[in-house]
Design a protein around this nucleic acid. Sequence first.
DNA 1: TCTGGGGTCCTAGGACCC
DNA 2: TCTGGGGTCCTAGGACCC
Length: 359
Amino acid sequence: MSQHRSSWVLHVDLDQFIAAVEVLRHPELEGKPVIVGGRGDPTERAVVSTASYEARAFGVGSGMPLRIAARKAPEAVILPVDGEAYTAASDEVMATLRAQSGAIVQVLGWDEAFIGIQTEDPEGYARQVQQAVLERTRLHCSIGIGDTLIRAKVATGFGKPRGVFRLTVDNWLEVMGDRPTIALWGVGTKISRRLAERGIITVAELAVAAPNSLVAEFGPRMGPWYAQLARGEGAQVVDDTPWVARGHSRETTFQQDLTEPEQVEEAVRELVARVLEDVEAEGRPVVGLTLKVRYSPFITKTFSTQVAQTFDREVVLVRALELVGKVEPDRAIRLLGLRAEMPTPEDAREGHTPTRSGW
DNA sequence: TCTGGGGTCCTAGGACCC
DNA sequence: TCTGGGGTCCTAGGACCC
């Protein structure tokens, strides 16, 4: 039953963030279809990062190959991804959020954050946040209000664009119950299909699904997690402890497939150098390496190895080149990636709770 | 249509040990 | 000879998100 509550979770999501930042520095693009992706060249292997609402009207969306996007929206302006510009804009947005009185801010990415807040008027507070963000950054955002992080996160989608929407235990099932499970954050095409095969089509059905059968199908953690997700339940407290990266990775899709072993080795040397730049910037050691290989046709393999804590570039290079030995010779390679893992605070602790289940 | 780049967490199965 | 049951560590790979 509904009860009085003064503790709220807000989820702030910038509207078409990347495209919006580009329009701010290219005012002449206002109102035009804008696509941002890759190096801005639709003849290259790349995908759409963000499309403006005008471009979306042509059926262009995130993750779509740039080549296809250009075909669907021939008039669209295609711009290269400029990460530094988005990081700068994002920093300003997050600083604005942190400056709101009483706000506990948990950053989720470039264009998203949770705010924990005590208020009797969450809608009023949300409008205030939108106004502050707009004044300081000229960017529009949508805000979801919830009594759990999950409900706030899902609510944002109903507020877009530029709106505010509230989801709580009182209206969650009414709003979400009849929707397909894929509408849930954390359920994608594969899981929704496996659920459907077991007769679970809607969020309401998943919310009351037998725990035993979910555990049998998805394992001891993910099984119960999906049912909980469908009920919108989970953490209610926004956690602003600074993020600690578990690792860093770099990958490159080659415009022409690699066919020579020397090319592969050279590419891996380069990846090692780029990954170590990030790792060294944090002054933390490497404890594991994963080499990712995408062959043509589109088949991805990974090879990983643990590494005794090291700061030594040569050691990392040698271990990475060992992994290269596992790559199948005589197959064209379209992508190489390298991930370096670093020790996490959890490694030192016993019986920690993984964050996803913690939600 | 033909699929980037940077992340996170979970699971399965083999190796090994007692 | 054919073989239990539990545990841990490690690698490979799956799934999802922005």
